[in-house]
């Protein structure tokens, strides 16, 4: 399969970016999207310059390999973060970019590739963004305050299976940022809610539930993420199908915290 790629290029956080066009050929339909990106980069390293660009007279074309975040390539680490043809993680459901396969595209198609779009995630280079904000939100309260050692036996507190399962549903969040990148308000509410709800459903996490919700929401606001207006776009694009019902649980915890104030 052959493709035309329109890719966002940006030298660093301070410089201005722009789209550049590249061609790739003979891509196997069974290759993953990131393997296709590897092939493009291999081409850029080997050629040094893009012959198509030279023939068209664009000498100032950026022919450095394209920077993009990737690691586990099996859909679990959450580092890959491409906005492909206007969709976070591209044209397939319930996946991260690394699990997108070229068989989902048409031969000869033009594919537009951009970094995550959100004020909270500044671009570092090309398609790589800084998601340090997500770490900071979790540092504000996304934990249970226990030290190592001195904890009770694991089976001393039974947990209703349904609750443990629902907690696991929320805990499946990989912290990729697709929710915030998709939201028209730029809200990170689904990400925050997944953590708050996962812990609030378990007796071990419930203890600090209200305090946690308040602290994490405050941090999210402080870091420049927008507010939630229940458009549900986040839920649609979440690779781990995390439901917005967790946002409802976050709101409940948050309200409880405010009532106590």
């Amino acid at each position: 399969m052959d493709f035309t790629l329109k890719i966002w290029r940006q030298k660093n956080a301070k410089s201005k970016g722009r789209f550049e066009t590249y061609q790739v050929k003979n891509i196997s339909p069974d290759s993953s999207f990131l393997e296709m990106m590897d092939i493009l980069n291999e081409q850029l390293v080997n050629e040094g310059v893009d012959p198509v660009a030279v023939s068209k007279g664009c000498k100032d074309k950026n022919t450095d390999p394209v920077a993009f975040d990737h690691d586990c390539r099996e859909g679990i680490c959450g580092i890959c973060s491409l906005y492909i043809n206007g969709r976070a993680h591209g044209p397939d459901d319930d996946i991260t970019t690394c699990q997108l396969y070229m068989r989902k595209f048409k031969d000869g198609e033009t594919i537009t590739i951009e970094p995550w779009r959100n004020r909270g995630f500044p671009v570092l280079k090309d398609l790589v963004v800084d998601r340090g904000a997500y770490d900071k939100i979790l540092q504000a309260g996304g934990f249970v305050s226990v030290n190592t050692g001195g904890v009770p036996d694991a089976n001393s507190i039974p947990v209703q299976k349904e609750k443990a399962d629902e907690s696991m549903d929320a805990a499946a969040c990989v912290g990729c940022g697709a929710c915030a990148a998709t939201c028209k308000n730029g809200s990170a509410m689904l990400f925050v809610a997944a953590r708050v709800s996962s812990l609030a459903l378990l007796p071990q996490g419930k203890v600090e539930g209200a305090r946690r919700a308040k602290a994490m929401v405050a941090k999210m606001d402080e870091l420049g993420f927008g507010s939630c207006t229940n458009t549900r776009a986040c839920e649609l694009e979440c690779p781990k199908q995390i439901s917005i019902s967790h946002i409802a649980r976050l709101n409940r915890e948050f309200l409880l915290a405010k009532l106590k104030d």
Partner: peptide
């Protein structure tokens, strides 16, 4: 024990 105390949702 430690992981349960941290809120790890093990299968039950």
């Amino acid at each position: 024990d430690q992981c349960v105390a941290q809120g790890v949702p093990f299968g039950r």
